[in-house]
């Protein structure tokens, strides 16, 4: 990840000769003082609040730590155990499906709705707020209960299907074959946050480009492809990176819908849910910490790939 900025920069050309390298070094340190002054609050936060727990969790991942007693050093035991823990492997599988299916689906819906809502029309503020509502409610206990009821064997969904002539007796949240998909649906349904970020991004595209394109008689589609997408790409990139990270850490929805069990039969046992279950439910915080660092490695690698790929499609003006 050492060259993130160069990689992501559109004009990131690499210095080759010693003189160029020296020049680049000088360039890199141009704003040293100002840079660190602006960064000061974040640095203080990092040192005082973040780094300690970060390192502590790394240390704990090599221990047996029940929370109640002091940690005991066990070396690589937790990491070895991860290799042969079938529930962990299942959690990884469930989470990958969720990330691979849920994230793109949610982003496409969010972008589509954001584009629709970005055009001048009456009642815009109202629609925007309505579409954001599920995200306000997403993690609440009441909504989880309603969700379980709607998708229950006698729930509204099955009743609607029966009206359509389908003999529906499926327990959408209680059958291990379907439960994950209803949670993915719940995830897509709460597309409010990426939508808002897209909207803000769309608003930042200067109108002059569209006006110039309109003068040239560009179609809606070509305006979208040639102006909107490139200029929105940093924001699309942000949403992609953060939604992938977020999806890997997905916890609340699965927790409330399955009552914290990840059930039925571990079919919605997301990685973080299992981590929480080990750490707090079964007093194995050392193992949970090891799981957390495996997650960091996986998500970090994916994020690095995301950054590498971004140089091909993300456009920055710097």
């Amino acid at each position: 990840m050492s060259a993130l900025f160069e990689l992501t920069s559109l004009k990131g050309s690499r210095a080759r000769t010693p003189e160029e390298k020296a020049a680049r070094r000088k360039e890199a340190g141009r704003d040293n003082l100002a840079g660190y002054l602006f960064l000061l609050p974040w640095l203080v936060g990092l040192v005082v609040i973040t780094i300690g727990p970060l390192i502590a969790s790394l240390y704990l991942s090599f221990t047996d730590y029940s929370l109640i007693q002091a940690p005991e050093w066990t070396g690589l035991e937790n990491y070895v155990r991860m290799l042969e823990d079938p529930r962990l492997h299942n959690a990884l599988r469930v989470t990958f499906i969720y990330v691979v299916v849920g994230t793109p689906l949610q982003l496409v819906v969010a972008l589509g709705i954001a584009l629709l809502l970005n055009e001048g029309m009456k009642g815009l503020a109202f629609y925007r707020s309505i579409f954001y509502l599920p995200s306000l409610l997403g993690g609440s206990v009441a909504i989880a209960l309603l969700w379980r009821q709607l998708f229950g064997t006698d729930g509204l969904v099955n009743q609607l299907l029966r009206l359509l002539g389908v003999d529906a007796t499926i327990g959408w949240v209680s059958d291990p074959s379907y439960a994950l998909w209803t949670i993915i649906l719940l995830h897509v349904w709460t597309f409010g946050s990426p939508m808002v970020i897209f909207l803000a991004g769309l608003r930042q595209i200067p109108a002059m480009y569209y006006e110039a394109a309109a003068v040239d008689g560009a179609t809606r589609w070509s305006r979208f492809i040639r102006i909107t997408l490139p200029l929105l790409s940093p924001i699309i990139f942000f949403n992609l990176v953060l939604q992938v990270i977020g999806a890997f850490q997905s916890f609340t929805q699965a927790f409330v819908v399955s009552n914290g069990t990840g059930g039925p039969s571990d079919s919605t046992m997301f990685y973080t849910l299992y981590l929480y279950d080990r750490g707090f439910g079964n007093f194995e915080m050392g193992y949970a910490a090891a799981m957390a660092w495996l997650l960091v490695v996986i998500v970090g690698a994916l994020t690095a790939v995301n950054f590498l790929l971004s140089r091909f499609w993300v456009f920055y003006d710097d």
């Binding site: 209960l145 379980r148 229950g152 064997t153 007796t169 499926i170 327990g171 949240v173 209680s174 059958d175 291990p176 399955s258 009552n259 069990t261 059930g263 039925p264 039969s265």
Partner: peptide
């Protein structure tokens, strides 16, 4: 099975 599974999460 589905109902038993459902029942297990109900308050």
């Amino acid at each position: 099975a589905a109902r038993i599974s459902e029942g297990a999460t109900k308050p």
